[in-house]
Design a protein around this nucleic acid. Structure first.
Lengths: 270, 270
DNA sequence: AGAGTCTGTTCCAAATATTGGAACAATACG
DNA sequence: CGTATTGTTCCAATATTTGGAACAGACTCT
């Protein structure tokens, strides 16, 4: 079957249509969910590059299943069922549960915000956090995805990846400048990774957000099926690089402790 | 096509296999995500009542798409992509954004935990909350689903439903005793709903959890496409029924304010 | 060890759902 | 009031799913 996705759609094309029918539907769902503003049928039509009839049916199915909702104004919005799925997923996540006490302990030691993130492709997904204080209601960014190349967690995770998988991941990176310090090339990033590999921890020197620094250490299981990290984050005015250096060791220790616990409680056999 | 879902599967059948291929896949996904313990292939086979070959392919697709993960022990677990979907969905939810300031205000007035929930079928989905204090890390149950018949939010939402939709929903209820006070019949529930309809607010008198009480008021848009509620919840030792009566009015006012804002900001036309 | 049972995986013709173009409504717009 | 534009429905060609059965691997029990 031929698809009209050669070049015509390049200006608009948002999400590479996944493989299989499920993939295509999810790709449509992602388009709607990711978008900043509510989308009407035509908007999605332009973004997805699918034929009218096909798209219409896909959207109908998504609405029927509660993954999308269609308001009176014909705009499609993310459905509540997505939240429910995620709640169940999160609250039963074995990895998060095992790591939780370590997060809390690290938070007590440092007093700053502690994050737990998991590597997925070229992104780090935040799966848990312990907040320093409810300052601004920066409301749980759990589930949020950030690029690997500009976060402490990301660099920590990459630093322990087996060479072939690392090369694979680096090849897929698309750099985007977030701050003056953001890495913009594999070469530059690799230097940081080498450093992190030697030390056992990685820094984020205001590379993702200005005025935000962090130290992170890698977590992984024996087979590298799970690659993650733990980090301590704080505002630059309060958290100097010297301070971060001091926290590096506790963070590193916490990460190792989690790795052990994971191995014991999740993968006893081989 | 004939399915082998007559009666044989009744002891095990968990999720009514949805309609369409997407529905069936999601039904499988839900089975895995909802389960308490990690499931192996055979477990899911028994629960879903689908043929081996079919199920195997469905699971493969779900794993490929990142909605599920398969560990070394062959157990299927919820995938990270679910979290990402939900994060995006949540952080962009128009309704939640509009309601947020009212939640905060109500929290300041009462000092107790404030919840925002939306009606979906026979359940209330929690979409936001402002916590009283970070006592126990009861970690955001956002996305959690509770039955309508034993929660303040649920009863408040039902109380404003148009008669036909109410009847429809009541007909689908399956009662389960959570506490000594849980409603166990439509008749008993209806008395509460009548009361709530007159007053404009509903109580949860330890009907879902012992030692937990709440007052809730309904929110809805003109076309009843959105039916929701806002509530103040607290432990029985601290929150007497008299106290709840006093909060009923502010809660009711907050709910009306949100309803108005929703109408203005989401559905100006028609 | 060997037979038996239970898993998980692969294969393939038949049944079914998806595809995508085009025709058909229903709006907005000039 | 005609004309775009947007949303919806229809249907034969096509790709996908279906589900039974055969296959392979792991475990248990004798």
């Amino acid at each position: 079957m031929e698809r009209n996705e050669p070049d015509i759609s390049s200006p608009a094309a948002a999400h590479n249509s996944g493989t299989g029918t499920l993939g295509k539907v999810l790709s449509v769902l992602e388009t709607v969910v990711t978008s900043d503003r509510p989308l009407r049928f035509s908007d999605i039509l332009a973004l997805s590059g699918q034929p009218r009839g096909t798209l219409h049916r896909q959207l109908s199915h998504l609405v029927e299943e509660g993954l999308l909702t269609q308001g009176r104004d014909l705009c499609y919005e993310p459905g509540l069922r997505l939240l429910t799925f995620a709640y169940r997923a999160w609250s039963k996540s074995q990895f998060r549960t095992v790591a939780a006490p370590h997060l809390r302990r690290l938070h007590e030691e440092t007093g700053e915000t502690v994050h737990l993130g998991v590597l997925r492709g070229t992104e780090i997904i935040y799966v848990d956090k312990v907040e320093s204080r409810q300052t601004v209601r920066m409301q749980s960014q759990i589930g949020n995805a950030s690029p690997v190349y500009c976060t402490g967690l990301g660099k920590a995770a990459l630093s322990v990846l087996p060479p072939d998988r690392l090369a694979d991941t680096l090849g897929k990176l698309i750099f985007h400048r977030f701050t003056a310090n953001t890495h913009l090339s594999v070469a530059s990033l690799t230097r940081d990774l080498d450093e992190a590999r030697l030390q056992g921890y990685a820094f984020d020197r205001e590379e993702h957000e200005t005025e935000i620094r962090c130290v992170a250490a890698p977590i992984h299981d024996a087979g590298f099926d799970l690659v993650a990290g733990i980090s301590v984050t704080g505002p630059a005015y309060r958290v100097t690089m010297e301070q971060l250096e001091n926290w590096a060791r506790p963070v590193h220790l916490a990460a190792m402790a989690i790795s052990e616990d994971v191995e014991i409680r999740l993968g006893p056999g081989r």
